[in-house]
Structure formats: structure tokens, C-alpha cells
């Protein structure tokens, strides 16, 4: 069983269940959400603000289809275990790196690089290789099979 940091109100749960997609494109989107949930606009705004401050949601906004705005790639490094902290810090230090995870594998450091164009990506990977002395695997997305409807939460 995982840990859940904060207790969520019924309205907050509904916001997470229903509004991972389809935020109204209306001048008062949160008032329209409030109408649908039968609460006030301020309740919706307060709930979303609290969820964002608690880190339960990262934002209310767009999820862009990969490689339609700028370009990105998934990269991996096989880092000797005694160097992992140091190399992870180096990689995280790049503004172009937006996710950086340790995973259980010989390739143990996995990160996503995003840039404005292919040349920008190549420069970041080359720079990481030069700085760490490790050659990254460059695994750009070729095809996306995932229809993102948001994550189906199971309330228990």
C-alpha cells in the first residue's frame, strides 16, 4: 500500500477524476467546472491551489504530444555505482533535462532531454558524454501508442 501525503476532500477527488482532461475553453473555466460539480468557483480554485501546493498535481494545463513542440529523447547511462550520485547531479544540472531517474539495470540512470530542435538535443547529449566520460544511449520516440486520457485513480 502506498502512502498518500494528504487527505483529499470529495471535491478534490472529483477534480482529479474528472478534470485530467477537458478543462473548459471558456473565459471562466473554473466556474464551468464548479457548475458541473455543484460547488462554488472559489471552492474549485482553492482545491486546485491546495493540490498544487501539496505537490499532488504538478499543474493545471496542457500535456503536449511528444515532438510536436520542440523535440525530446530518452537517454540512459551505465554509471558505475560509486559515481552514481555525482553523475546524477551533473545530469540534473542541465536545464534541458526534465526527468532523471535511477533504475535497476546496468543502464541505471535514465533521463529525458528536451530541446527546441534536434541540434540542441545532440549538443546536450554530447556535453553530458564529455562531462561524465560515459556514452549515453539515445532512444528517441519513434511512435506513440498511448492515448492519454489521464490516469485512472483507484480510491481505496
Amino acid at each position: 500500500m502506498g502512502t498518500q501525503a494528504i487527505e483529499l476532500s470529495a471535491t478534490e477527488r472529483r477534480l482529479l477524476d474528472v478534470y485530467q482532461r477537458g478543462l473548459p475553453l471558456d473565459p471562466r473555466p473554473f466556474a464551468r467546472v464548479a457548475d458541473a460539480l455543484g460547488v462554488s468557483e472559489q471552492t474549485v480554485l482553492d482545491g486546485l491551489t491546495r493540490l498544487q501546493q501539496a505537490g499532488v498535481i504538478s499543474r493545471v494545463g496542457p500535456v503536449f504530444r511528444p515532438n510536436r513542440v520542440g523535440v525530446s529523447t530518452l537517454a540512459a547511462l551505465a554509471v558505475p555505482s560509486e559515481r552514481l550520485d555525482e553523475v546524477a547531479r551533473t545530469v540534473s544540472g542541465y536545464a534541458e533535462v526534465n526527468h532523471n531517474y535511477e533504475r535497476e539495470h546496468d543502464y541505471n540512470l535514465w533521463f529525458v532531454v528536451t530541446a527546441r530542435d534536434a541540434r540542441g538535443l545532440a549538443q546536450v547529449l554530447a556535453s553530458i558524454a564529455a562531462e561524465t566520460g560515459l556514452e549515453p544511449l539515445d532512444l528517441p520516440m519513434l511512435e506513440d501508442y498511448f492515448i492519454d486520457l489521464g490516469f485512472e485513480l483507484q480510491w481505496t
Binding site: 482529479l16 478543462l23 473565459p27 503536449f64 504530444r65
Partner: peptide, 30 residues
């Protein structure tokens, strides 16, 4: 702004517009 966002949604550049959850913070630890 509304028109441009609608265009990006309709054409699939924006996959979805709404709440973006963080799995770990919701108890999806693994």
C-alpha cells in the same frame, strides 16, 4: 488565447488540457 488553445487541442498538439497529477504524491509509489 482560447481560439489558439482550441486549435492545438483539436489538432492533437495538446493531448489533453486539465489537471496533471503526480503519481508518487497520490500514493502510486512504484
Amino acid at each position: 488565447v482560447i481560439r489558439m488553445i482550441r486549435e492545438l487541442v483539436d489538432q492533437g498538439v495538446i493531448k489533453r488540457l486539465g489537471v496533471v497529477v503526480r503519481h508518487h504524491e497520490l500514493g502510486y509509489d512504484a
